[in-house]
Design a protein around this nucleic acid. Structure first.
Ligand code: MN
Ligand code: MN
Ligand code: ZN
Ligand code: ZN
Lengths: 134, 134
DNA sequence: AGCCTTATTTAGAATAATTCTAAGTCTTAA
DNA sequence: TTAAGACTTAGAATTATTCTAAATAAGGCT
């Protein structure tokens, strides 16, 4: 919940102003913004940045596993700085997206029928729905 | 596993040749084809069909819950005639996509931390990985 | 500091999946 | 039969994203 003030550092990468700002925007408000959202926010502090650079920075951050890319259906990709394994819930009333934790100690094979020893490299769980007592 | 010979019938919809053929192609080979794949296959029996019509038919079938639309990351949508609730596994070696059953009697809240009484309208689970002894 | 090499950024063009538009065709129900 | 509406079609448009090529910035080294 608290904002880390550590500077992002990825070995072999130049921590340019643009990369730092894109990353800062993602950690500052964890609302799963799209690239266009990030662009709008970064422009406030870095007016000269281009949308291409925002896409480049996001791609770099994703490649280096500093953030996650999250897709809902065929909408624009969204970006998430939560590196813990988690799913996403899209609230149909408010439009907000919430991180969903997996129950502690649960294994994929506890709820999915997958062959023994399958090596899972990626797992995406996304839900849409309506929260109670809304 | 057996192919049903029942004709698809959706109340209020005209079962045109195009819709029947698109649906037949989807049930005939359950390999999760893209719209372009479906187009190629339907053209064999219905050479005059247009890609727009394939998209229209797929959209109609999805809207009426006769088939499911499945998305992997930002790839082209794929289509699946399996109406049981299931997830998808994308085999990174062969590129094939497999349906994944949920374990019997499992509830979402058994493995996900969601507020009580949340009304889930949609659930997407997709995995990528490598099968054993490949 | 000045110079060189390479990474990064940038604007704009290109791409690709999908959706839209408008016109033609088919179905169905009086 | 005929009119209304449903459906299909070709091609244009849209939109998120990626690509291209030129400009700039960052480091490393002297
Ligand atoms: Mn996210
Ligand atoms: Mn599928
Ligand atoms: Zn998240
Ligand atoms: Zn399926």
């Amino acid at each position: 919940m608290s904002t880390s003030t550590d500077t992002l550092n990825i070995p072999g990468l130049r921590m340019t102003k643009q990369r730092k700002e894109v990353y800062r925007v993602l950690t500052e408000t964890r609302d799963h913004p799209t690239a266009a959202d990030v662009y709008d926010r970064v422009k406030l502090s870095t007016p000269g940045i281009s949308l291409a650079t925002v896409y480049n920075c996001l791609e770099t951050l994703v490649e280096h596993k500093a953030v996650k890319q999250v897709n809902f259906e065929r909408e624009s990709s969204r970006y998430c700085p939560n590196l813990n394994e988690h799913g996403h819930f899209h609230d149909e009333i408010t439009g907000t997206i919430h991180d969903i934790k997996f129950k502690d100690g649960i294994k994929l094979s506890d709820f999915l029928d997958i062959p023994e020893d399958t090596h899972i490299t990626n797992l995406d769980i996304t839900l849409r729905g309506i929260l109670p007592k809304n």
